[in-house]
Every structure is written in C-alpha cells, then in structure tokens.
C-alpha cells in the first residue's frame, strides 16, 4: 500500500461540560490515501466537525496523533478548510478573499493576483473579482471560499458541509463543479456532510461515524463501483446508488436513534 496522505491514530477528544467530562471522539484511527476523496457522515453531535477542526489545527486532540505527509521539498501549506458558515471576509473583494491564504504566505500583491485568477475563472467568478461579498448570492460566496482553499494549494483539503446552507439547485450545480475541479487537481479531501446522497456522489470512500463519542463505525468503498471521472446523474440513476444509500442509512439509523435518545 502507498504511504497515506493523512494518518490519524487513536484520536480522542474530551470536553469538560461544567464538571462533567464529555467524550466527543473516542479512538479514531484512519488513513486517507493521497488524492482520495473521503466523506464523513454521522449523526448530529458525533464529532465529525471536531475531527475536521483537529486536523485543521483549530482544535487540539486530548490524545492521539494527526500526521499529514508532505511531499519531499514541498512548501505547500498542510491544509485549507472550507467552512459551513459564510466565511468570506465581507470587507475584502472576491479577489482579495481568494488570495487571503497566499497573502498570509507572503506572496506579493501582483504575484498572488496572478496565481488566483485561474482558480477564480475555474469556479465561475470571472467578472466578479472586484465585487464585495454582500453583492453576491450565497452560492457565489461559497465559490469564493472554495477558490480561497484551492488557491492556497494545500496538501489536503478539509470541507465542513460547505453546501449545507445552500438551496437544492445551487447545491447540485456546486457539487458538480466541485467534482470537476477536484478531478483536475486530485487533492486529498476530507468532506464532512450529513447528506448520504452527497457522500455517495462525491466520494471515493464514506466513513460512517457512531453517535457520541464518535468512533469509526464503518468505511464503505464507493470508488470501485463508481470510477472516475464521474457523472453525477449517472451515479444517481445507477441501482448501486440505491444499495449504497440503503446500506449507509441502515448503519446511520441506529446511531441517529441512539443520538436522539441521548440528547432527549
């Protein structure tokens, strides 16, 4: 087996809620291969987002290790995250938002503008470079966030339900575009979603997590059934799609029930 791009070993995360210890993650171990698109589904509160934030370095694990392998000699940043909420800066125009990571890495103005332009073109933001976010729709703003992540050219891409707040049609279009861009770049992606449909259509593998404390319940291989490049419509009309859906849902249902009982 090739060296994994991301290796999680026995990852635990414990919160203190008043005087009570709450385990969000319990013993997560996982390898993600280079260029792999991995989706994570699980009941609400299972710690999917926490796991992503730990990988992103925004939170620390209580114990366990996170390793992101760099290609030898690479100076690329380890990760870039696309958030669920609106995360583009309202005070920066589209171009400066997309170039934010590059600016943080010290690229000069002209250089980073040159670097960011092809990505803006790719995500369909050509002509909107000087627009401020408040002039854009929700979908356009998420395109900016995606452009910002891709422009930074990270070792792995972390996406936390990036389309959850969008309407259904916009979501479909953006999913297709994400696939297209990803297929060109073949970035390693960890993609958190609560949509089984999204997980099947986009991913190589789907990780199903248990209710809190979050554990790896099962990892389902999609890639062998739906090779790349993919056509979303074809995937959805395939009988295998239904099988995957049923299987993931049956795995999830118990956990969702468990989660709702815990929170009740």
């Amino acid at each position: 087996m090739v060296e994994p791009k991301l290796r999680l070993r026995d990852l635990n995360r414990r919160f203190m809620l008043r005087d009570r210890a709450v385990d969000a993650l319990a013993g997560i171990s996982l390898d993600v291969a280079p260029g792999e698109f991995l989706s994570i589904v699980g009941p609400s509160g299972c710690g999917k987002t926490t796991m992503l934030r730990i990988v992103a370095g925004l939170e620390t694990a209580t114990s366990g290790t996170v390793e992101i392998m760099r290609e030898p000699g690479s100076t690329r940043p380890l990760n870039a995250m696309v958030f669920q909420q609106e995360s583009v800066f309202p005070w920066k125009n589209v171009r400066d938002n997309a170039a934010f990571g590059l600016k943080a890495r010290g690229f000069g103005k002209r250089e980073r503008y040159e670097m960011v332009q092809p990505i803006l073109d790719k995500v369909g933001l050509r002509g909107f470079e000087d627009a401020l976010p408040h002039q854009l729709s929700g979908g356009m703003k998420q395109r900016v966030a995606i452009a910002r992540a891709f422009a930074n050219d990270p070792e792995i891409m972390l996406m936390d339900e990036p389309f959850a707040a969008l309407d259904e049609q916009t979501k479909l279009i953006l999913q297709a575009e994400l696939l297209r861009i990803w297929e060109e770049s073949r970035k390693t992606v960890m993609y958190v979603t609560h949509s089984i449909d999204e997980a099947i259509t986009l991913s190589d593998r789907v990780l199903v997590m248990s209710a809190r404390p979050g554990r790896v319940k099962e990892i389902i291989d999609i890639k062998s059934a739906f090779p790349r490049p993919r056509d979303i419509a074809a995937v959805k009309s395939s009988p295998k799609y239904g099988e995957f859906f049923g299987r993931i849902w049956s795995l999830l249902r118990d956990e969702v029930m468990a989660a709702s009982l815990v929170s009740a």
Partner: peptide, 16 residues
Amino acid sequence: RIYLDVGRNYHASRLM
C-alpha cells in the same frame, strides 16, 4: 469567530 478561524487556518501572521 469564523473570521478568526479562517485567519488561523490560513496561518495569518499577528500583524495580518
């Protein structure tokens, strides 16, 4: 908080 998260995620310097 999201804006601060973005800043940290992209390793913006303290000045930035």
